[in-house]
Protein backbone atom coordinates (compact mmCIF):
# COMPACT_ATOMS: atom_id res chain seq x y z
CA UNK A 1 0.00 0.00 0.00
CA UNK A 2 1.18 3.53 -0.65
CA UNK A 3 -0.21 6.85 -1.81
CA UNK A 4 -0.24 5.55 -5.37
CA UNK A 5 -3.12 3.11 -4.85
CA UNK A 6 -5.17 5.34 -2.62
CA UNK A 7 -7.77 7.87 -3.56
CA UNK A 8 -7.29 11.44 -2.47
CA UNK A 9 -9.01 14.79 -2.95
CA UNK A 10 -8.54 16.50 -6.33
CA UNK A 11 -6.68 13.48 -7.64
CA UNK A 12 -7.64 14.36 -11.23
CA UNK A 13 -5.00 17.11 -11.20
CA UNK A 14 -2.96 16.66 -8.03
CA UNK A 15 -1.29 13.26 -7.86
CA UNK A 16 0.27 13.72 -4.46
CA UNK A 17 1.10 16.28 -1.78
CA UNK A 18 4.32 16.27 0.10
CA UNK A 19 5.90 18.14 2.98
CA UNK A 20 9.56 17.79 3.83
CA UNK A 21 11.37 19.29 6.77
CA UNK A 22 15.12 19.44 7.21
CA UNK A 23 16.77 19.29 10.60
CA UNK A 24 20.29 18.92 11.92
CA UNK A 25 21.41 17.70 15.29
CA UNK A 26 23.22 20.27 17.42
CA UNK A 27 27.01 20.15 17.58
CA UNK A 28 27.60 17.44 14.97
CA UNK A 29 29.16 18.44 11.61
CA UNK A 30 26.72 18.48 8.68
CA UNK A 31 26.76 15.49 6.28
CA UNK A 32 28.75 17.64 3.79
CA UNK A 33 31.90 17.04 5.84
CA UNK A 34 30.92 14.49 8.50
CA UNK A 35 33.11 11.51 9.41
CA UNK A 36 31.72 7.95 9.47
CA UNK A 37 31.50 7.98 13.27
CA UNK A 38 29.34 11.13 13.12
CA UNK A 39 27.04 9.42 10.64
CA UNK A 40 26.53 6.49 13.00
CA UNK A 41 26.00 8.85 15.91
CA UNK A 42 23.25 10.68 14.01
CA UNK A 43 21.61 7.51 12.72
CA UNK A 44 21.52 5.85 16.13
CA UNK A 45 20.22 9.00 17.81
CA UNK A 46 17.31 9.19 15.39
CA UNK A 47 16.80 5.44 15.58
CA UNK A 48 16.30 5.78 19.35
CA UNK A 49 13.13 7.79 18.62
CA UNK A 50 11.60 4.85 16.74
CA UNK A 51 9.53 3.43 19.64
CA UNK A 52 7.92 6.85 20.16
CA UNK A 53 6.99 7.18 16.49
CA UNK A 54 4.63 4.24 16.21
CA UNK A 55 1.08 5.48 15.89
CA UNK A 56 -1.29 3.23 14.02
CA UNK A 57 1.42 1.95 11.70
CA UNK A 58 4.80 0.32 12.03
CA UNK A 59 8.03 2.21 11.51
CA UNK A 60 11.16 0.47 10.27
CA UNK A 61 14.76 1.60 10.37
CA UNK A 62 17.26 0.53 7.73
CA UNK A 63 20.83 1.41 6.89
CA UNK A 64 20.97 2.00 3.14
CA UNK A 65 24.08 -0.14 2.77
CA UNK A 66 21.94 -3.13 3.82
CA UNK A 67 19.34 -2.50 1.09
CA UNK A 68 19.92 -4.01 -2.40
CA UNK A 69 20.61 -1.51 -5.20
CA UNK A 70 17.35 -2.18 -7.08
CA UNK A 71 15.28 -1.76 -3.93
CA UNK A 72 17.07 1.51 -3.28
CA UNK A 73 16.15 2.72 -6.75
CA UNK A 74 12.51 1.71 -6.23
CA UNK A 75 12.40 3.80 -3.07
CA UNK A 76 13.58 6.75 -5.16
CA UNK A 77 11.01 6.23 -7.90
CA UNK A 78 8.23 5.88 -5.37
CA UNK A 79 9.39 9.25 -4.02
CA UNK A 80 10.04 7.71 -0.63
CA UNK A 81 13.73 8.57 -0.70
CA UNK A 82 16.01 10.74 -2.79
CA UNK A 83 18.80 9.99 -5.23
CA UNK A 84 21.04 11.95 -2.89
CA UNK A 85 20.35 9.55 -0.02
CA UNK A 86 21.31 6.63 -2.25
CA UNK A 87 24.49 8.30 -3.43
CA UNK A 88 25.52 8.43 0.22
CA UNK A 89 24.34 4.90 0.94
CA UNK A 90 27.46 4.08 2.93
CA UNK A 91 26.50 6.49 5.67
CA UNK A 92 22.77 7.04 5.13
CA UNK A 93 19.74 5.41 6.67
CA UNK A 94 15.98 5.54 6.27
CA UNK A 95 13.01 5.26 8.57
CA UNK A 96 9.79 4.38 6.80
CA UNK A 97 6.29 3.68 8.03
CA UNK A 98 4.44 0.62 6.79
CA UNK A 99 1.87 2.77 4.94
CA UNK A 100 4.73 4.36 2.98
CA UNK A 101 3.51 7.81 3.85
CA UNK A 102 6.14 9.03 6.27
CA UNK A 103 9.84 8.60 5.71
CA UNK A 104 12.78 10.01 7.61
CA UNK A 105 15.99 10.20 5.61
CA UNK A 106 19.10 10.21 7.74
CA UNK A 107 22.40 11.72 6.60
CA UNK A 108 21.16 12.96 3.27
CA UNK A 109 22.07 16.59 2.65
CA UNK A 110 21.06 17.28 6.24
CA UNK A 111 21.17 14.96 9.24
CA UNK A 112 17.41 14.53 9.19
CA UNK A 113 14.98 15.03 6.34
CA UNK A 114 11.44 13.97 7.11
CA UNK A 115 8.86 13.57 4.38
CA UNK A 116 5.18 12.97 4.44
CA UNK A 117 3.54 12.10 1.15
CA UNK A 118 -0.25 11.80 0.79
CA UNK A 119 -2.44 11.04 -2.24
CA UNK A 120 -4.21 13.95 -3.91
CA UNK A 121 -4.30 17.49 -2.61
CA UNK A 122 -3.62 17.24 1.13
CA UNK A 123 -0.95 19.75 2.05
CA UNK A 124 -2.34 20.64 5.45
CA UNK A 125 -2.68 17.06 6.68
CA UNK A 126 0.84 16.36 5.40
CA UNK A 127 2.23 19.32 7.34
CA UNK A 128 0.33 18.31 10.48
CA UNK A 129 1.76 14.80 10.34
CA UNK A 130 5.29 16.14 9.81
CA UNK A 131 4.91 18.57 12.66
CA UNK A 132 3.93 15.68 14.94
CA UNK A 133 6.92 13.55 13.92
CA UNK A 134 9.18 16.56 14.40
CA UNK A 135 7.81 17.10 17.92
CA UNK A 136 8.49 13.47 18.77
CA UNK A 137 12.08 13.47 17.50
CA UNK A 138 12.72 16.82 19.17
CA UNK A 139 12.01 15.27 22.57
CA UNK A 140 15.14 13.16 22.32
CA UNK A 141 17.31 15.16 19.93
CA UNK A 142 18.59 18.70 20.30
CA UNK A 143 18.42 20.48 16.96
CA UNK A 144 20.83 23.02 15.51
CA UNK A 145 18.66 26.09 15.90
CA UNK A 146 19.40 29.78 15.73
CA UNK A 147 17.18 32.38 17.27
CA UNK A 148 17.22 34.60 14.21
CA UNK A 149 17.83 32.11 11.40
CA UNK A 150 15.66 29.28 12.68
CA UNK A 151 16.60 25.68 11.88
CA UNK A 152 20.14 25.59 10.53
CA UNK A 153 20.60 23.56 7.37
CA UNK A 154 23.58 22.48 5.33
CA UNK A 155 22.51 24.61 2.37
CA UNK A 156 21.46 28.19 3.15
CA UNK A 157 18.55 27.84 0.73
CA UNK A 158 16.74 25.68 3.32
CA UNK A 159 17.49 27.63 6.48
CA UNK A 160 14.60 28.91 8.63
CA UNK A 161 11.67 26.54 8.56
CA UNK A 162 13.69 23.91 6.72
CA UNK A 163 10.37 23.14 5.08
CA UNK A 164 9.64 22.33 1.47
CA UNK A 165 6.00 21.77 0.65
CA UNK A 166 5.32 20.39 -2.79
CA UNK A 167 2.55 19.02 -4.91
CA UNK A 168 2.88 16.81 -7.94
CA UNK A 169 0.47 18.04 -10.58
CA UNK A 170 -0.59 16.53 -13.87
CA UNK A 171 -1.07 19.49 -16.21
CA UNK A 172 -1.51 18.13 -19.76
CA UNK A 173 -4.13 20.63 -20.91
CA UNK A 174 -2.24 23.68 -19.68
CA UNK A 175 0.88 22.32 -21.34
CA UNK A 176 -0.93 21.77 -24.66
CA UNK A 177 -2.25 25.32 -24.44
CA UNK A 178 1.29 26.61 -23.79
CA UNK A 179 0.25 28.14 -20.49
CA UNK A 180 3.02 26.65 -18.39
CA UNK A 181 5.65 29.36 -18.91
CA UNK A 182 3.25 32.04 -17.80
CA UNK A 183 2.22 30.00 -14.78
CA UNK A 184 5.82 29.38 -13.81
CA UNK A 185 6.62 33.08 -14.07
CA UNK A 186 3.60 34.03 -12.02
CA UNK A 187 4.15 31.63 -9.15
CA UNK A 188 7.81 32.60 -8.91
CA UNK A 189 6.62 36.07 -7.92
CA UNK A 190 5.09 34.68 -4.75
CA UNK A 191 8.10 32.60 -3.79
CA UNK A 192 7.01 29.33 -5.43
CA UNK A 193 8.71 27.33 -8.11
CA UNK A 194 7.85 24.50 -10.50
CA UNK A 195 9.84 21.89 -12.35
CA UNK A 196 9.25 18.77 -14.39
CA UNK A 197 9.44 15.79 -12.09
CA UNK A 198 10.37 12.97 -14.47
CA UNK A 199 13.17 13.38 -16.94
CA UNK A 200 15.90 16.00 -17.05
CA UNK A 201 16.21 19.62 -17.91
CA UNK A 202 13.24 21.74 -18.77
CA UNK A 203 11.22 18.95 -20.33
CA UNK A 204 8.46 17.64 -18.09
CA UNK A 205 7.89 14.00 -19.04
CA UNK A 206 4.23 13.04 -18.84
CA UNK A 207 3.31 16.71 -18.25
CA UNK A 208 3.93 16.22 -14.56
CA UNK A 209 5.19 19.16 -12.57
CA UNK A 210 6.27 19.60 -9.03
CA UNK A 211 5.27 22.90 -7.49
CA UNK A 212 7.03 23.89 -4.29
CA UNK A 213 7.96 26.82 -2.11
CA UNK A 214 11.33 28.38 -2.79
CA UNK A 215 11.55 30.55 0.30
CA UNK A 216 12.12 28.92 3.68
CA UNK A 217 13.18 31.87 5.82
CA UNK A 218 10.72 34.58 6.83
CA UNK A 219 7.21 33.23 6.42
CA UNK A 220 5.98 30.69 8.95
CA UNK A 221 5.18 27.10 8.00
CA UNK A 222 1.46 27.87 8.02
CA UNK A 223 1.97 30.89 5.75
CA UNK A 224 3.97 28.82 3.29
CA UNK A 225 1.32 26.08 3.23
CA UNK A 226 -1.57 28.47 2.74
CA UNK A 227 0.29 30.28 -0.06
CA UNK A 228 0.81 26.96 -1.78
CA UNK A 229 -2.83 25.99 -1.35
CA UNK A 230 -4.06 29.23 -2.89
CA UNK A 231 -1.71 28.99 -5.87
CA UNK A 232 -2.36 25.30 -6.49
CA UNK A 233 -6.15 25.75 -6.32
CA UNK A 234 -5.90 28.32 -9.07
CA UNK A 235 -3.70 26.16 -11.26
CA UNK A 236 -6.02 23.22 -10.62
CA UNK A 237 -9.10 25.14 -11.71
CA UNK A 238 -7.34 26.44 -14.83
CA UNK A 239 -6.27 22.92 -15.74
CA UNK A 240 -9.81 21.60 -15.35
CA UNK A 241 -11.21 24.33 -17.56
CA UNK A 242 -8.46 23.74 -20.10
CA UNK A 243 -9.16 19.97 -20.15
CA UNK A 244 -12.82 20.53 -20.89
CA UNK A 245 -11.90 23.04 -23.59
CA UNK A 246 -9.34 20.70 -25.14
CA UNK A 247 -11.92 17.93 -25.25
CA UNK A 248 -14.64 20.13 -26.63
CA UNK A 249 -12.51 21.63 -29.39
CA UNK A 250 -10.87 18.29 -30.14
CA UNK A 251 -14.16 16.41 -30.35
CA UNK A 252 -13.81 12.90 -31.71
CA UNK A 253 -10.13 13.63 -32.39
CA UNK A 254 -9.55 14.03 -28.67
CA UNK A 255 -11.30 10.78 -27.78
CA UNK A 256 -9.41 9.08 -30.58
CA UNK A 257 -6.05 10.27 -29.23
CA UNK A 258 -6.91 8.99 -25.74
CA UNK A 259 -8.04 5.58 -27.02
CA UNK A 260 -5.03 5.30 -29.30
CA UNK A 261 -2.74 6.04 -26.36
CA UNK A 262 -4.51 3.32 -24.38
CA UNK A 263 -4.31 0.97 -27.34
CA UNK A 264 -0.58 1.44 -27.62
CA UNK A 265 0.01 0.96 -23.90
CA UNK A 266 -2.22 -2.12 -24.08
CA UNK A 267 -0.47 -3.71 -27.05
CA UNK A 268 3.00 -2.29 -27.66
CA UNK A 269 6.04 -4.57 -27.62
CA UNK A 270 8.61 -1.83 -27.17
CA UNK A 271 7.98 1.31 -25.15
CA UNK A 272 10.59 3.98 -24.74
CA UNK A 273 10.30 5.96 -21.49
CA UNK A 274 9.56 9.28 -23.17
CA UNK A 275 6.79 7.92 -25.36
CA UNK A 276 5.46 5.79 -22.51
CA UNK A 277 5.11 8.92 -20.38
CA UNK A 278 3.40 10.77 -23.23
CA UNK A 279 0.78 8.00 -23.67
CA UNK A 280 0.26 7.61 -19.92
CA UNK A 281 -0.36 11.33 -19.71
CA UNK A 282 -2.87 11.14 -22.55
CA UNK A 283 -4.59 8.16 -20.92
CA UNK A 284 -4.66 9.89 -17.53
CA UNK A 285 -6.31 12.97 -18.99
CA UNK A 286 -8.86 10.72 -20.70
CA UNK A 287 -9.64 8.81 -17.51
CA UNK A 288 -10.09 12.08 -15.60
CA UNK A 289 -12.76 13.05 -18.17
CA UNK A 290 -14.57 9.74 -17.84
CA UNK A 291 -13.13 7.99 -20.89
CA UNK A 292 -11.80 4.41 -20.69
CA UNK A 293 -14.40 3.11 -18.22
CA UNK A 294 -13.11 0.65 -15.63
CA UNK A 295 -9.81 2.44 -15.11
CA UNK A 296 -9.28 4.78 -12.18
CA UNK A 297 -6.72 7.54 -11.78
CA UNK A 298 -5.03 5.38 -9.14
CA UNK A 299 -4.74 2.57 -11.70
CA UNK A 300 -3.08 4.94 -14.17
CA UNK A 301 -0.67 6.29 -11.56
CA UNK A 302 0.18 2.72 -10.61
CA UNK A 303 1.01 2.01 -14.27
CA UNK A 304 3.13 5.16 -14.40
CA UNK A 305 5.24 4.00 -11.47
CA UNK A 306 5.47 0.45 -12.81
CA UNK A 307 6.83 1.78 -16.11
CA UNK A 308 9.70 3.75 -14.59
CA UNK A 309 13.13 2.14 -15.13
CA UNK A 310 13.48 0.73 -11.61
CA UNK A 311 9.86 -0.43 -11.57
CA UNK A 312 10.48 -2.45 -14.72
CA UNK A 313 13.80 -3.76 -13.47
CA UNK A 314 12.30 -4.89 -10.20
CA UNK A 315 9.56 -6.83 -11.99
CA UNK A 316 12.12 -8.56 -14.18
CA UNK A 317 14.79 -8.74 -11.50
CA UNK A 318 17.56 -7.57 -13.79
CA UNK A 319 19.53 -4.41 -14.54
CA UNK A 320 18.78 -3.47 -18.14
CA UNK A 321 19.04 -0.59 -20.58
CA UNK A 322 18.21 0.38 -24.15
CA UNK A 323 15.82 -1.72 -26.24
CA UNK A 324 15.90 -4.56 -23.73
CA UNK A 325 14.55 -2.22 -21.06
CA UNK A 326 11.99 -0.72 -23.44
CA UNK A 327 10.73 -4.18 -24.41
CA UNK A 328 10.52 -5.20 -20.76
CA UNK A 329 8.60 -2.00 -20.03
CA UNK A 330 6.05 -2.85 -22.73
CA UNK A 331 5.66 -6.33 -21.23
CA UNK A 332 5.22 -5.03 -17.70
CA UNK A 333 2.61 -2.48 -18.77
CA UNK A 334 0.72 -4.90 -21.01
CA UNK A 335 0.50 -7.48 -18.25
CA UNK A 336 -0.48 -4.88 -15.65
CA UNK A 337 -3.33 -3.67 -17.89
CA UNK A 338 -4.47 -7.24 -18.54
CA UNK A 339 -4.55 -7.87 -14.82
CA UNK A 340 -6.51 -4.71 -14.13
CA UNK A 341 -9.03 -5.73 -16.80
CA UNK A 342 -9.36 -9.20 -15.33
CA UNK A 343 -9.95 -7.91 -11.81
CA UNK A 344 -12.57 -5.47 -13.13
CA UNK A 345 -14.41 -8.26 -14.96
CA UNK A 346 -14.58 -10.27 -11.76
CA UNK A 347 -16.06 -7.34 -9.90
CA UNK A 348 -18.83 -6.96 -12.47
Amino acid sequence: MSWINETGPDRDVVMSSRVRIARNIADIPFPSIMQPQHAVQVAEKVRSCLPDLKSGSRFDFMYMRDVPAIERQILVEKHLASQDLMKRYEQSALIMDSREKITVMINEEDHIRMHCILPGFQLNPAWEQMNKVDDIIEQKVEYAYHEQLGYLTCCPTNVGTGMRASVMMHLPALTINKQMNLILQTISKIGLTARGIYGEGSEALGNIYQISNQITLGPSEEDIISNMIIACRQIMEKERIARKAVRKTGGIQFDDAVWRAFGILRNARVLELKEFMAYISQMRMGVSLGLIPGFSLEDVDGLMTAGQPAGVMRKTGRIMEGTELDAARADVIRKAIEELEKSKEKNI
Binding site: H146, E147, Q148, L149, G150, Y151, T157, V159, G160, T161, M163, G191, I215, T216, L217, G218, P219, S220, E221, D223
Partner: peptide, 8 residues
Protein backbone atom coordinates in the same frame (compact mmCIF):
# COMPACT_ATOMS: atom_id res chain seq x y z
CA UNK B 1 15.12 34.25 0.96
CA UNK B 2 13.93 37.84 0.96
CA UNK B 3 14.30 37.91 4.71
CA UNK B 4 16.76 37.07 7.42
CA UNK B 5 14.38 36.63 10.32
CA UNK B 6 12.81 33.27 11.06
CA UNK B 7 9.16 33.53 12.06
CA UNK B 8 8.19 29.87 12.03
Amino acid sequence: QGSSQHAG
